[in-house]
């Protein structure tokens, strides 16, 4: 819950971004409080993934302001933003085919003390231990997702961007991912979650930021989700 007493960990203000010549984000503004889980909801092409990529410094042209723990990151390269403590789990998991599971796990450098150890990650996702010498892309979709999340938990980053972690996964795996996100939240992690699976989002989030055509059109606290269902259906077309 945003508690209003502590400053937000992230304040996005008037964020504009471009892919080459096409303008894709139009004045996106929202903030995220410490320990909060915020989802970005919206239809395909609404700008959710683009927003995460812009936060991560992966778009060539960005304007506006992104304050992360009080540091203006709009002009910083991605590697500096990651070093400030922002961990990224990209869409389609971003597992490297030419690296083994273990090499994938150890690819991101530690950016802060207190990250999960290799053993803790295997404890959380036992499948990864058995497959640790396999090529990353020989894993099932669910195992790849666990690897992508475990990989970022190892770095010590405590602000996570998760891009559709449940996409294309079996319900039992989706449940496991949900429990993992709940556990991270209980440990004080702050999470921005892009999600198409609305029921999953409602189960883990504190607040929902709704996007349409590159703009934020609504913000709905999770405890008002029942009352706002009609509005939300309109946005998402569900």
């Amino acid at each position: 819950m945003p508690d209003g007493t502590r400053p937000p960990r992230l304040t996005v203000d008037g964020l504009n971004a471009w892919y080459g010549p096409s303008h894709v984000l139009f004045g996106v503004s929202f903030d995220v409080a410490p320990g909060e889980v915020v989802t970005l909801l919206g239809r395909n092409g609404a700008g959710k993934t683009t927003t995460l990529r812009a936060l991560m410094g992966m778009l060539p042209k960005r304007m506006g302001s992104i304050l992360f723990d009080g540091v203006e990151t709009i002009g910083l390269p991605g590697r500096r933003i990651a070093r400030l403590g922002m961990g990224y789990v990209p869409e389609e998991r971003g597992i490297f085919a030419s690296l083994s599971v273990r090499e994938n796990l150890f690819l991101p450098p530690e950016i802060a003390p207190g990250g999960a150890s290799e053993e803790e990650i295997y404890g959380l996702f036992p499948n990864l231990r058995e497959r640790r010498f396999s090529r990353g892309t020989q894993l099932s979709g669910g195992e790849q997702q666990m690897l992508a999340i475990g990989r970022i938990m190892r770095t010590g980053a405590r602000f996570l961007l998760l891009d559709e972690p449940t996409e294309g996964l079996a319900p039992v795996i989706v449940e496991q991912i949900g429990r993992t996100i709940a556990a991270l939240k209980a440990q004080g992690f702050t999470v921005i979650l892009v999600e198409q699976n609305f029921r999953f989002a409602a189960a883990v989030a504190d607040r929902h930021v709704v996007m349409e055509t590159g703009r934020v059109v609504d913000t709905i606290p999770n405890d008002q989700i029942g009352a706002s269902m009609g509005r939300l259906r309109g946005y998402l077309g569900i």
Binding site: G57, G78, R79, S98, L99
Partner: peptide, 15 residues
């Protein structure tokens, strides 16, 4: 090897 595959993501990991 990772940077050969996807330099943007490797950069986003802080490298």
């Amino acid at each position: 090897r990772a940077a050969q595959e996807n330099p943007g993501l490797v950069e986003a990991f802080g490298i």
